[in-house]
Amino acid sequence: MATLELRGLKKYYGNTHAVDGIDAAIAEGEFLAILGPSGCGKSTTMRMIAGLEAPSAGEVLIGGKSVTHLPPRARNVSMVFQSYALYPHMSVLENIAFPLKARGVPRTERDAKIKWASAMLGIEPLLQRKPGRLSGGEKQKVALARSLVRDPALFIFDEPLSSLDAQVRTMARSELRLLHDRTGVTTVYVTHDQIEALGMGDRIAIMQHGRVRQLGTPQQLYDQPADTFVAGFLGSPPMNLLQRGGRIIGIRPEHLLPAPPGTTDDQSFELQVRIKRLEFLGTDWLIYGLLETGAQGQKVLSKVSPGIAATLQEGALQTFRVERMCLRFFDPATGSRVDDGPR
């Protein structure tokens, strides 16, 4: 366990700025999720933390000490790759033993560690198998055991769930977080899946174009997005961003609810919407509409419960209402949030 600090971290490939100045401090035992679309620089950042890529500028500090110029093996980090990177020519047991052997851990201690790690992940029956004969979920557990067995200062996960089936993924998510809570190792978790980031991270760093757009708890990011990128990235579906006067108004679809006309009060804000389509999502309905007041023709989305959806009709003109405290305002020029709510 250790703290992790990034200071002005940059990586350029020729003229492309893959990572363009990242500053972040992660506390001991914290679970930080790095979230962003593909090509945002999150993988490069992670690879620089692990030592697989040398930064063009800036520093990486683990446990307060600079490791910027150390090779990966001297950083005491462990990593679970997206593909799990299990060594195909070694059995599961040899895979788990590999980091210990590479560090010259004595045999008795090694055996104890392997036993402990494989028990924790419930993979004892698989120890003699070759990785080629494991399922996706089993491979993930072996990769976890291999990274766990040597008490790393820092865990790095590179989209470890993306190659799992959808059903297994939900389970694996909570298991992974529970594992973190049990071992308490500082963790950096890279993903493009916001559900994973929101559900697992103590804090989330959202990245775009090589920069961190916002770093905060999942709730902060969701409720007080720092800019239109974060607002438009998080949430499914994401925030409605409507051009209104000199500002952009942000409304979460679940806050935009149909209301009978003429019941306006000071606390709420009304929009006239032409309903284009109703879409059933299981627990909710999604309403696709076009704005008929203000900036006409803008698309808006609303998410409502089945009871409310039953009262709506495609093609009808409907009044929607938002509580004023749920509105967020952004500057159209910079994209930054400009209301005075907490950041």
Binding site: S78, M79, A85, R146
Partner: peptide
Amino acid sequence: MPRELEESALIDGCSRWQSFLRI
């Protein structure tokens, strides 16, 4: 050959030379 295999070895405590020899 997938690069991650050798990178994983690097993180697991090998130098580049060792990861060449062992992986």
